[in-house]
């Protein structure tokens, strides 16, 4: 799998059933290219989850972010660099 110019999004979402479905459903429905997902509850606040997305959508990135922000269970969406991201720390698990 070649990832040309992936963007990394760091989401804060409500931690309850169905959230991952809503995010992944949005990406499927709008044919956004999702290269990676990692999600776990936030360590110090179990009501929230942190979701890391690796997306390959240079041209539609702003549109993708706006659509993601519209999801009711999504509290915030930030762009993040590879450095310091969950994907950088876990690259060895995906060889």
């Amino acid at each position: 799998m070649s990832v040309t110019n992936p963007a990394i999004l760091k989401l804060t979402v409500k931690n309850h059933p169905g959230v991952l479905s809503h995010v992944c459903g949005l990406f499927a429905r709008r044919a956004y290219n999702l290269e990676g997902v990692m999600v776990r509850p936030v360590r110090d606040d179990k009501k929230l989850s942190r979701m890391w997305l690796l997306v390959n959508e240079e041209d539609r990135l702003m549109q993708l972010i706006k659509q993601t922000e519209k999801l009711v269970d999504v509290i915030s969406v930030e762009q993040h660099s590879m450095a310091g991201s969950a994907f950088e720390a876990t690259q060895e698990y995906f060889v």
Partner: peptide
């Protein structure tokens, strides 16, 4: 139903 309604609603719930 939750999965079917998901892409065609503003938001959807399965009440527990």
């Amino acid at each position: 139903t939750f999965g079917l309604m998901l892409p065609i609603t503003k938001h959807n719930y399965l009440v527990r």
